[in-house]
């Protein structure tokens, strides 16, 4: 079964690492500090979350605390998905 974390990782590898699977990206690595994302990439990431998980992101959601690593992204998406399902 494909998990949220798998989907997030696949998106990041495809779009920000251009398919380079040799890049050692841990779940907790900062996407900004490791130069994986720039300001345009944040907008791409928001579009990905909204399009694929049906989550409407308000401005206060778009912060590094929610989006700056695979782990944070997965947690954020999971929490919102649960809230939506409830």
């Amino acid at each position: 079964m494909v998990t949220i974390k798998d989907k997030v990782r696949t998106f990041i590898v495809d779009n920000f690492l251009f398919g380079d699977t040799s890049y050692q990206l841990s779940d907790t690595a900062s996407l900004i500090e490791n130069d994986i994302m720039d300001s345009t990439a944040v907008l791409e990431l928001v579009a990905f979350i909204e399009d694929n998980f049906g989550i409407a992101m308000v401005d206060s959601d778009v912060v590094p605390a929610n989006l700056d690593s695979i782990e944070r992204l997965s947690s954020f998406i999971s929490a919102r998905a649960k809230a939506l399902a409830a």
Binding site: D14, L17, F18, G19, D20, D35, D38, T40, A41, E44
Partner: peptide, 22 residues
Amino acid sequence: NAKAVASLHEKCRTQPVSGFRD
């Protein structure tokens, strides 16, 4: 990296705005 460049080329073709890095 040939595959990565192909992916970048395709991304630039399909997305109207490319970031500074791209």
